[in-house]
Write a protein that binds this DNA or RNA. Structure first.
Length: 639
RNA sequence: GCCUCAAUAGCUCAGAUGGAAGAGCGGUUGACUCGUAAUCAACAGGUCAGGGGUUCAAUUCCCCUUUGGGGCUCCA
């Protein structure tokens, strides 16, 4: 007999050699029916997996968080079987489950068309309906290689197999009663019908092993869900994302437009977009001055020598814009750090003066590969809300705590509800001492603990020059954006010979962190547009109030009303064009202006306004000073 | 950069087996002066991305360039 510990801590005894499914049945027939896999200690296993030792076991049903991954992996296999059936010359390569579903890469001469996708999808549905079991089979690597060489003529699988050296045997999974089998670690759902619903989403190409020098493959993306309802929800989310696309909304709301013939990756920000950026900037400066930062400004280009000192010519040159100044080489800045280092170095600092915090909204230029450019999300000219903090090693933890508090304050103010912290530790290739890394990494961890915020560790994911904290922010429809990063830097202080004078009147090296909160302000703006679907809160709205006269007789009164609002520094405009009133209301609504005010005879007489707020609620006879105060209060509260 | 799909009016798009370029919205002008999400009419707008080729004839077919969309190892 062996002892099985369940997630709730309870233990049951079963006969050695019984399967995961047996345990589920033991607990209850309902659970056995719902089960699709198990987690044995830390590993995911099939229901047919035999239990031979005392262990922890969790039964995974379609409702479990981990089910999505397993389900999608099985769906990838079913897709591969459908593709091979329809295109016998297609060679499956790899097909993992990913966060957004699954994909499978095929080597095939002709690319898949939209019509092919539909055919593949209906073939998959047939296979799912047939409800054949997934069967696991362990064979030796040698045998597997023979199989792929002789039976399937698939050099890709052979290549994968030849790289596996940690075990002698390997597992295959087959379904369709053995018609299709594929090299796979598993686990899989017990039978095809458990993959309730699938949808193929797109087809694209990808390189074998992501290497541009290797074969080009055709990749099909799809997604599987436990229920029809979940799929519908997901498709709605995709629709929703499309509606919020800042590349559409930006030009539509006259905020900005992305690159075209004037230079890919070089966005033009229009007056209204600029108002939002300015509001972001004002908030930023106010908060940073409060937090003891000194605001600076550094040039857009420096001579080559600066970038040699910083190491950029060595490590970053591919991404930099060179400037040939009649034979002398300059570079446009891809980062603000060197300028800030030089500003620190303008004089000697005493240990008593640290920390020194230097901040700048600095516009940088990076030559990104043309293929990665994407709206305002990935551009070649963008503004970082950059800051560098120079401090004693003992101050690191406090400073990190300060930055984290500021990050939280910012995201809350801009209307986000959830964000997550990640700490990245020392990578394989790194500079700096072991003690330095340990001290800095611990400071990051302790800081997170002090603010009492949960965080995850990304092992070995730090930059070569120091550990870091990243923050992922979730938007209104659940998409995640990496915004803030807080990085310790052991590199630049060395390169720029950054010092402070210690109590012993000797020179010492300070710790330096760089950090951004918005990240790139243009990207943050685009995220705000998608987050709010263009409906900016009042304090961020480029136009906060539009006044619409009922007839031409009310134009003067409309102008006077606008004046009242302008005096209170509320962004107001009157629409005095010759259009009909209804038309103007429609335009203002489509422009997502928070408050639309109508003025006619009634209002003129009583010195009031009719207020239409978002959601088409109209209130008549509103007193103007009262309404101004209401808006001012909203702006003050960042609403 | 590489793979793939695409490029027609300011915007969204239609179009013809290769034979005189279309709609809606937007713009301008005129009329309407209106009470809460589109008043009516007229007019202007295009080297069909650019270059080359095939053809009696190319926006349409082929090649190149430019630009844009999607994608480019979250491990069998």
């Amino acid at each position: 007999m062996v002892e099985v510990t369940l997630p709730d801590g309870s233990k049951i005894e079963i006969k050695k050699g019984k399967t995961v499914l047996d345990v589920a049945e033991n607990i209850g027939p309902g659970l056995a029916k719902a089960a699709i896999a198990g987690r044995l200690n830390d590993d995911f296993v099939d229901l047919t997996c035999k239990i031979v030792d005392n262990c922890n076991l969790e039964i995974i049903t379609l409702k479990s968080d981990d089910a999505f991954h397993i389900l999608n992996h099985s769906a990838a296999h079913i897709m591969a079987s459908a593709v091979v059936k329809i295109f016998p010359n297609a060679r499956p390569t790899i097909g993992p489950a990913v966060d957004e579903g699954f994909y499978y890469d095929f080597a095939i001469d002709e690319p898949f068309s939209q019509e092919d996708l539909e055919n593949i999808e209906s073939q998959m549905k047939e296979f799912i309906e047939a409800d054949t079991p997934f069967v696991r089979e362990d064979i030796s690597i040698k045998e597997a290689i023979e199989y792929y060489k002789l039976t399937e003529d698939n050099k890709f699988k052979v290549e994968i197999l030849e790289e596996i050296d940690d075990s002698n045997s390997i597992s295959f999974y087959s379904h369709n009663n053995g018609d299709f089998k594929d090299l796979c670690r598993g686990p899989h759902v017990p039978s095809t019908k458990r993959v309730t619903t699938v949808k193929l989403l797109s087809v694209s190409s990808a390189f074998w092993r992501g290497d541009a020098k290797r074969e080009s493959l055709q990749r099909i993306y799809g997604i599987a869900f436990p229920t029809e309802k979940d799929l519908k929800k997901h498709l709605r989310m995709l629709e929703e994302a499309k509606k919020r696309d800042h590349r559409i909304l930006g030009p539509q709301l006259d905020l900005f437009d992305t690159a075209d013939e004037w230079g890919p990756g070089m966005p033009l920000i229009f007056p209204k977009g600029r108002v939002i950026l300015e509001t972001m900037r004002n908030f930023w400066e106010k908060e940073h001055k409060k937090a003891g930062y000194e605001i600076v400004q550094t040039p857009h280009i420096f001579k080559e020598i600066v970038w040699q000192t910083s190491g950029h010519t060595e490590y970053f040159i591919e991404n930099m814009f060179p400037v040939d100044l009649r034979g002398e080489l300059w570079y446009v800045k891809p980062m603000n750090c060197p300028g800030h280092m030089m500003i620190y170095n303008r004089r000697a600092y005493s240990y008593k003066e640290l920390p020194v915090r230097i901040g700048e909204m600095g516009t940088v230029y990076r030559y990104e590969l043309s293929g990665v450019l994407h709206g305002l999300f990935r551009i070649r000219s963008f503004t970082q809300d950059d800051a560098h903090i120079f401090m004693l090693p003992s101050q690191l933890e406090d400073e990190i705590v300060n930055v984290i508090n500021m990050v939280n304050h910012f995201y809350k103010t801009f209307g986000f509800k959830e964000w997550e912290y990640f700490i990245s530790t020392k990578p394989a290739k790194a500079i700096g001492t072991e003690e330095g890394w340990e001290h800095a990494t611990n400071a990051l961890i302790n800081a997170m603990k002090r603010v009492d915020i949960p965080f995850k560790i990304k092992k070995g994911d730090g930059a070569f020059y120091g550990p870091k904290i990243d923050v992922d922010v979730k938007d209104a429809i659940g998409r995640k954006w990496q915004l803030s990063t807080i990085q310790v830097d052991f590199n630049l202080p060395e390169r720029f010979d950054i010092n402070y004078l210690g109590e012993d009147s000797q020179k010492h090296r300070p710790y330096v962190i760089h950090r951004v909160i918005y990240g790139a302000t243009e990207r943050f703006l685009a995220i705000l547009v998608e987050h709010y679907e263009g409906k900016m809160p009042v304090w961020l709205s480029p136009i906060q109030v539009v006044v619409i006269p009922i007839t031409d007789n009310h134009v003067n009164y409309a102008k006077k009303v606008v004046e009242e609002f302008s005096k209170a520094e509320i962004r107001a405009e009157a629409d005095t064009s010759g259009e009909r009133m209804e038309y103007k209301i429609r335009q203002a609504t489509l422009n997502k202006i928070p408050y639309i005010l109508n003025v006619g005879d009634k209002e003129l007489e009583s010195k009031t306004i009719a207020v239409r707020s978002r959601g088409n609620k109209v209130e008549f006879g509103v007193n103007i000073p009262d309404f101004i105060n209401k808006i001012l209060k909203e702006i003050e509260n960042y609403q």
